Amino acid sequence: MSIERVHLSLTLERLWQFSLQYYSVREVKEACLSLQNHYHGNVNLLLLLKWLDEQGATIAAQDWAQVEECLSRSEILLSSFRELRRKCKRSLPDTLYREALQFELQLEKQQQSDLVDCINGLTLLNADDEPLTLRYCRQLDGEHLYSVFSQPFSDNATETL
């Protein structure tokens, strides 16, 4: 891996907007949900890694534990709330269920904020090795999902679901 540093301007709003656009692609959404539901992956982390891949940046191997640590703060709350929301889906009125979804989205955004703070505290390097999204899918034993994430992202590729 190159020791050349990369200087990126990552803000919560930039990552959030990228995530909304990228996740709106049907195949990406399905692969993300599969990664989350079947391989216990973190979609926000995957979206961040995809953003870094698109920027040609990578995280040093020794910094990976720090990234995972920053996720642990919000992941328990988020996954617990998600599970509760799913269990209550049939018994909640539609308006209350939509409010629960909105609250979950706010938790997702907070988790992305934690990730942005973490990444901005690291030294990023030029990527000349395998993409971060491939490494993450492989780490979760979901390497076959990488074929979806390997496609370059274009704002024009989004579709409304």
Results as ranks from 00 to 15, higher is better:
Trp16Gly: 07
Phe103Arg: 05
Ala127Thr: 02
Leu124Ser: 06
Lys89Gln: 14
Leu12Ser: 05
Val43Ile: 15
Leu12Lys: 09
Leu140Lys: 15
Asn126Phe: 10
Glu75Thr: 11
Leu115His: 13
Ser24Phe: 10
Val28Arg: 03
Ala65Thr: 13
Val25Asn: 06
Asp141Ser: 12
His40Lys: 13
Arg26Asp: 04
Leu107Asp: 09
Cys137Lys: 11
Trp16Arg: 04
Asn37His: 14
Arg98Asp: 07
Glu99Ile: 08
Cys70Gly: 03
Leu101Glu: 14
Glu13Gln: 15
Phe18Trp: 10
Gln21Cys: 02
Asp63Asn: 15
Arg26Gly: 08
Ile76Gly: 08
Leu49Asp: 04
Leu49Tyr: 14
Thr133His: 05
Leu47Asn: 00
Leu92His: 07
Val28Ala: 00
Glu83Ile: 03
Phe103Ile: 06
Ala127Ile: 02
Leu47Ser: 03
His38Val: 00
Asn44His: 02
Tyr39Ser: 00
Gln112Asp: 09
Tyr136Glu: 11
Glu108His: 04
Gln102Ser: 15
Phe103Tyr: 14
Arg98Glu: 08
Asp53Cys: 09
Ala61Tyr: 01
Ser91Thr: 12
Leu140Arg: 13
Leu140Gln: 06
Asp94Ala: 09
Ser74Glu: 01
Thr123Met: 00
Ile119Gly: 03
Cys70Arg: 13
Leu96Ala: 12
Tyr136Asp: 03
Ala65Asn: 09
Asp141Trp: 00
Arg98Ile: 05
Val28Gly: 00
Ser24Arg: 11
Ser91Asn: 01
Trp16Ser: 06
Ser91Pro: 01
Gly56Gln: 08
Ala100His: 13
Lys50Met: 00
Asp53Gly: 09
Leu71Asp: 08
Leu124His: 02
Lys89Phe: 04
Leu45Pro: 01
Ser113Thr: 04
Arg26Thr: 12
Leu124Pro: 01
Leu46Asp: 10
Asp117Met: 12
Glu143Trp: 07
Glu83His: 10
Leu47Lys: 03
Ser113Ala: 13
Glu83Asn: 03
Thr95Lys: 14
Leu122Phe: 09
Trp51Ala: 00
Glu27His: 14
Trp51Pro: 00
Leu20Phe: 01
Ala60Val: 01
Gln102Lys: 11
